[in-house]
Design a protein around this nucleic acid. Structure first.
Length: 801
DNA sequence: CTTTTAATAAAT
DNA sequence: TTTATTAAAAGT
């Protein structure tokens, strides 16, 4: 008898292991590892993943049978099954969560409720409520408002409510026509035609030449100029048969990608290429840190490495921070490799994602370009994994499962014996330190393409501006430079560092600040909708006219949101054409790309936006980049604040002067002597690295220590606090003295969505006890979940809120 | 002693 | 996640 090991779709500690199921004889030999199946579990029918198939079971009770497979082919490869198992263990997650995140939404389990009559009911009920059928969908019952009437029936046991599993995966098909008749038979038909039947003659000629190939109506029209009406005649006469052809929704079908050829590499690029190509041809797993200044031509090196991989008949995985932000990346890859490229990112619809996924699965695409989650693409025979901008925090998922794409990339690289390339102009300290210790191989590109110099960066002390009575958000220097570029018809990019920063309103009379009723944070003013919004829970309310505390009418508007800056800028330069790019203006599908390409076409003089403009912007006419407030990100309660600021400034500086015009950067700051700002000004990564490393060393932070963040939340502040102290006591007892336990402290947002947050940060070097201890804490928390007490563990946290 | 409610173990 | 079982508390 065959037995399947199944991970069931219930995310809980007790179910986080395979359960054995008997494979019914008719499915024998047909089910495989990685397939999704429908299984009975406890009292319900749920989805599960087969992780293994064996010929016996150690389970002592009687095995239940698998109801049916939900796939014809496995959804997960053996590699992904193994990856999910390792990953769940490392990041304190459930295996089922890991498997679910590996798949496109369309393959994730959805359940419907159905009401079924199981015992005699009166005729009235049968016809009025159930419309003469014995089942009724839950949604319909809810929308018709008849649930109250069903309560009694349920009590009497006349009806029951069942969960049914929905398989949402639907491929799109088109109608195609082909012939199943033999050649000579068609020839006979051809000769038997009346003279007047010219169109039919054309059709038969076409059918003969197609030799059984199926075409759509559109294709018949295009290739042979045969109208749909003629095809219908063909079907009626039995020459043609209708069938369905599966098609892929191609999100880029309307776009034309100009084919590009490999560019000649500079000596430095070539050296880097050869170094990495070496481990490619040796099929050796090795992690490279490719550190190249902005504009050093990292992308071309990537492209040529991938070309090499394809040459060998292997596949490539290319990760970018958030591809929706970098349409130019897509152009690069589609341009070089055409249809062999599958693109995965959050802006695709569920159907489009599913189709791209299937393209990869079927081996019809051998290059995958995508954001974080595409690290789980079902590519077989991987030849290389490249992660661009490896320092970006978007590679870490901050919901469960809290994985870091970099770690997954390295795992897969090991599995496939292939190189992993981490590319960045400003590598994360973790990666840079690993290169130092020779865990990764450092490859550097120091020169810019065409020997172009890095732009001149000027730091403006905003305290001086304030003293000189300049109350505007723009320093005098920046205003002058903007005016200068406007007259020269050159383009300007202005960046507002809005991290941890927002506009709020305060009563001038009593100092009252409007806060979110659910979260411990002030509400942000949004001029487009004329409302006050909370960024954390979405709460929205009208802008108050009178102060709720003192009834005063004098509000002062604080902070500098992009909208407010835009107004100010427009006031200073009434004739300038300004494009604003922030969360509000880019929410719609394709919003980023629309704004960026409009700017690229020269439809605006100034592009004003938040950090998102720092990436994927590469237009030749930009000669001035201004950073309005460089240091708002420095004040955050996060040990990576300096690193983030440095990376951001370096990255945005790289946007200036990419073509024949030299670029200039103005950085406005209230801390102009801060080392992160100074090193960014000098384009001095190594200097920054050394300074920051010594600070991290003194303070005992990563990369010198590992870190784990344990966080607790509950609607009752007392309960949350009590629990975190309990955990603190356990950790104190279990962990060695060399380990540093910080906290308990309030979360950096102490209250969010009416829940209070408390956290502990554990810093350690060698702590074999930590993993089991944390696991135990998580296990024990299971029963408290029901009472709304949630514990979350984040190994190597990236964001501290 | 029965009924109601809360806690908890088990699910193949 | 859902449910069956058990234990404890409340009611009669």
């Amino acid at each position: 008898m065959q037995v399947a090991k199944v991970i069931v779709d219930i995310p809980a500690m007790q179910t986080n292991r395979p359960f054995d199921y008997a494979i019914p004889p008719e499915m024998n030999e047909k089910l495989g590892k990685g397939m999704r199946v429908e299984v009975p579990f406890n009292t319900r029918v749920i989805q599960g993943f087969i992780t293994d198939i064996q010929d016996h079971s150690d389970f002592e009770g009687e095995l239940k049978e698998i109801i049916q497979p939900l796939d014809i082919e496995p959804a997960l490869t053996e590699e992904l099954i193994a990856l999910g198992e390792d990953m769940a263990e490392k990041i304190f997650s459930y295996r089922i969560h890991c498997y679910q995140t590996m798949l496109p939404t369309m393959l994730k389990a959805k359940y419907d409720k159905e009401i079924k009559i199981v015992d005699e009911v009166s005729e009235d009920i049968f016809f009025d409520l159930f419309h003469g059928k014995d089942t009724l969908s839950w949604d319909e019952a809810v929308s018709r408002g008849i649930l109250p009437k069903l309560i009694e029936l349920k009590k009497n046991g006349q009806i029951e409510v069942n969960f049914i599993l929905k398989n949402q995966a639907k491929s799109k098909t088109v109608s195609v026509y082909h012939s199943e008749l033999a050649m000579d038979r068609l020839e006979d038909e051809y000769h038997g035609l009346k003279k007047s039947a010219k169109q039919q003659k054309v059709l038969l000629e076409a059918i003969l030449s197609l030799n059984g190939t199926a075409l759509t109506q559109k294709e018949y029209k295009e290739m042979f100029d045969i109208s749909p009406q003629t095809i219908r005649t063909g079907v009626e006469k039995g020459w043609l048969k209708l069938s369905e052809r599966e098609i892929f929704r191609d999100p880029y079908k309307d776009k034309d990608f100009k084919r590009t050829e490999a560019l000649p590499l500079s000596a430095e690029q070539d050296e880097a290429f050869k170094k990495m190509n070496q481990s490619l041809s040796e099929e050796k797993h090795e992690v490279f840190l490719l550190k190249g200044v902005t504009g050093s031509g990292k992308t071309e090196v990537y492209l040529q490495l991938i070309a090499e991989v394809l040459q060998k008949g292997k596949t490539a995985l290319m990760l970018v921070p958030e591809i929706a932000l970098t349409p130019q990346m897509v152009h690069h890859f589609k341009g070089r490799f055409g249809d062999r490229v599958a693109v995965m990112h959050s802006a695709l619809s569920a159907g489009e994602k599913y189709d791209e996924w299937r393209k990869i699965y079927n081996g019809e695409a051998d290059v995958v370009v995508g954001a974080r989650s595409s690290i789980f693409s079902p590519v077989k025979n991987l030849g290389i994994i490249i992660m661009d901008e490896e320092h970006e925090s978007t590679y870490k998922q901050d919901e469960n499962p809290k994985y870091h794409a970099r770690n997954v990339a390295i795992w897969r690289g090991e599995y496939h014996h292939c190189p992993v390339v981490l590319g960045s102009a400003t590598p994360s300290l973790e990666s840079r330190a690993r290169a130092q210790k020779k865990v990764y191989t450092l490859v550097e590109l120091k020169g810019r393409f065409n020997q172009r110099a890095l732009p001149e960066v000027e730091v403006v002390d905003m305290r001086e501006e304030f003293k000189a009575n300049n109350r505007s958000s723009f320093s005098m220097v920046l205003q002058e430079k903007i005016a200068d570029r406007l007259t020269k018809r050159q383009q300007i990019v202005l960046m507002l560092n809005r991290r941890g920063y927002s506009s709020f309103i305060m009563c001038r009379d009593c100092g009252f600040v409007l806060e979110c009723p659910n979260c411990d944070i002030s509400l942000t003013l949004h001029m487009d909708s004329k409302t006050m919004k909370c960024h954390y829970c979405g709460h929205e309310e009208a802008i108050p006219h009178t102060c709720p505390k003192c009834q005063g009418h004098n509000f002062r508007y604080y902070g500098t949101g992009t909208q407010k800056i835009e107004e100010e800028l427009q006031g200073l330069f009434p004739d300038a054409r300004i494009l604003r790019m922030d969360v509000d203006t880019t929410r719609k599908k394709g919003g980023h790309e629309a704004i960026l390409s409009a700017f690229g076409r020269g439809e605006a003089d100034i592009l004003l936006g938040t950090q998102m403009i720092a990436k994927g912007l590469d237009f030749p006419n930009i000669t001035l980049v201004g950073v309005i407030n460089a240091d708002t990100s420095l004040g955050l309660p996060d040990f990576r604040a300096s690193e983030r600021t440095f990376q951001l400034l370096t990255q945005v500086s790289g946007r200036a002067g990419r073509a024949d015009l030299p670029g200039e950067v103005i950085v406005q700051s209230y801390n102009p002597e801060h080392y992160a700002i100074l090193f960014a000004q000098q384009h001095n990564y190594d200097g920054f690295y050394r300074t920051e490393m010594s600070l991290r060393h003194k303070a005992g932070y990563p990369p010198y220590y590992f870190a784990a963040l344990i966080s607790v939340n509950n609607p009752d502040e007392q309960k949350a606090q009590r629990k975190i102290h309990e955990i603190h006591a356990i950790l104190k007892k279990q962990l060695s003295s060399g380990t540093i336990i910080l906290g308990p402290s309030k979360g950096s947002i102490a209250k969010m969505n009416n829940r209070y947050y408390f956290q502990i940060l554990v810093k350690y070097k060698h702590e074999p006890n930590l993993h089991p201890t944390l696991k135990k804490i998580l296990d024990d928390s299971q029963k408290e979940n029901a009472r709304g007490l949630y514990i979350s563990i984040d190994s190597e946290p990236v964001n501290f809120f």
